[in-house]
C-alpha cells in the first residue's frame, strides 16, 4: 500500500488539497480546539549519550492535544516516535523542554497516563479479569469494586466470556483489546499507544482500528497513537503529527480532512488520498537515502532455469 505514490493511476481527476476541509470538518476542528488542553509538549529535546558520543534523538518537539482528541504520530523509522511516547509515559527522561499534563509536569509513570504497548504485556499469571483489575487494585480500589468495573470494561469490548481465561488462551487481537481496557480501567486522562496493532495481521488490525474508534467515541479519552502505517493514521486520527528523522523534528501537524464517523469506505475518498499523498511526500523527504535500500537489484544473478519468464 505504501508505494501507491509511485504508481499513481494516470487520468484521474487531480486530488483536492489536503488542506481543504468541508464545513462539517472545519466546525468539528473549531470545537475541538476550544476544548481544554490535556497534553502540552513544549520545546522537548532528548539526547542519548553512549560513552563519548551524544545523539540528538528528538529536537524541539512542540504540540498540544485537546480533550477527546485522537492524535497520531507518524514518521520514518528512527524518527524517535517510540522515544517520544515513552517520554510522555514517563518511562524515559527527557533532556530539556516541558511535558505538561493538565499543566502539571510529567516526570515518572503514573495512572493519569495509560499506555498500550506493541507486545501485549498482559500479566500471564493473571486471568483476563484480574489483568483489568490490576491498575485499580494497585491504586487502592477494593477488590469488589475493582471486579465490578473490570467486568463492565470487558463487556464494552465483548470479552466478558473470557474473564477467567488466561492471556495465553487469547488471540493477538483479543489480547490487545484486553490491554486497552486494562489501561482505560484506570481512567487515565490520556491513552498512549505505541504501535499497538503492529504485530497483528491485516484483517485483525483493521477490525481493531474500528474497535478502538468505537471505544474512543464512547468514553472521555484523549489518545496519542504511534504508528508507521499511514492508512491507519489517517483512518484513526483527528490530527497527525509528522516527524522527520535524525533528529526527530516536527515537520507538520496535519488536520485530517476526512469526516467523522469514519468507515473503511473512506479509504478511497479524495480527502483520504490527498492526505495520504501529503504524508508520503513528507515522509519520503524525511527519509535519508539508505544504502541498503537504494533501489535496483541488478547485481543479483538470476538463479533459475525455468524457461518461461514470468515477467
Amino acid at each position: 500500500m505504501s508505494d501507491t505514490a509511485m504508481n499513481k493511476p494516470v487520468g484521474l481527476p487531480a486530488l483536492p488539497s489536503y488542506l481543504d476541509q468541508s464545513d462539517a470538518v472545519r466546525a468539528r476542528f473549531e470545537r475541538l480546539k476550544q476544548r481544554e488542553v490535556i497534553l502540552k509538549v513544549d520545546g522537548l529535546n532528548k539526547v542519548f549519550s553512549s560513552g563519548q558520543r551524544e545523539t540528538l534523538a528528538l529536537s524541539d518537539i512542540s504540540f498540544e492535544t485537546h480533550r477527546r482528541e485522537f492524535l497520531c504520530v507518524v514518521g520514518p523509522s528512527g524518527c524517535g516516535k517510540s522515544t517520544l511516547v515513552r517520554i510522555l509515559a514517563g518511562l524515559e527522561e527527557h533532556t530539556s523542554g516541558d511535558v505538561l499534563l493538565l499543566g502539571e509536569p510529567v516526570s515518572e509513570p503514573g495512572r493519569d497516563r495509560g499506555m498500550v504497548f506493541q507486545g501485549y504485556t498482559l500479566f500471564p499469571w493473571l486471568t483476563v479479569k484480574k489483568n483489568v483489575m490490576f491498575g485499580l487494585e494497585v491504586n487502592g480500589s477494593g477488590a469488589y469494586e475493582a471486579e465490578k468495573q473490570a467486568l463492565q470494561w470487558l463487556q464494552l469490548i465483548g470479552l466478558e466470556k473470557f474473564a477467567d481465561a488466561y492471556p495465553n488462551q487469547l488471540s493477538g487481537g483479543m489480547k490487545q483489546r484486553v490491554a486497552i481496557v486494562r489501561a482505560l480501567a484506570n481512567q487515565p486522562r490520556i491513552l498512549l499507544m505505541d504501535e499497538p496493532f503492529g504485530a497483528l495481521d491485516a484483517q485483525t488490525r483493521s477490525r481493531m482500528q474500528a474497535h478502538l474508534l468505537e471505544i474512543w467515541r464512547k468514553i472521555d479519552i484523549t489518545i496519542v497513537f504511534i504508528t508507521h502505517d499511514l492508512d491507519e493514521a489517517i483512518f484513526l486520527a483527528d490530527r497527525i503529527l509528522v516527524l522527520s528523522a535524525h533528529p526527530g523534528q516536527v515537520q507538520e501537524l496535519i488536520e485530517v480532512p476526512v469526516p467523522h464517523p469514519r468507515s473503511s469506505a473512506q479509504f478511497i475518498s479524495p480527502e483520504f488520498l490527498a492526505t495520504k499523498a501529503r504524508l508520503e511526500e513528507l515522509i519520503h523527504k524525511g527519509e535519508a537515502p539508505d544504502e541498503e535500500d537504494s533501489g535496483t537489484y541488478s547485481m543479483v544473478a538470476r538463479m533459475t532455469d525455468i524457461a518461461d519468464d514470468i515477467d
Binding site: L91, P109, G114, T121, F123, P124, W125, L126, V138, N139
Partner: peptide
C-alpha cells in the same frame, strides 16, 4: 521488562513492583 513498564504505567509504585510483578512473573 515490558511487564514492569506496563505495571508502572498502570500506577504501580516502585516498591509494589517486587510483589506485584517481579515475583509472580
Amino acid at each position: 521488562v515490558g511487564l514492569v513498564e506496563a505495571a508502572l504505567t498502570l500506577g504501580t509504585k516502585r516498591f509494589q513492583l517486587l510483589w506485584r510483578v517481579v515475583i509472580p512473573g
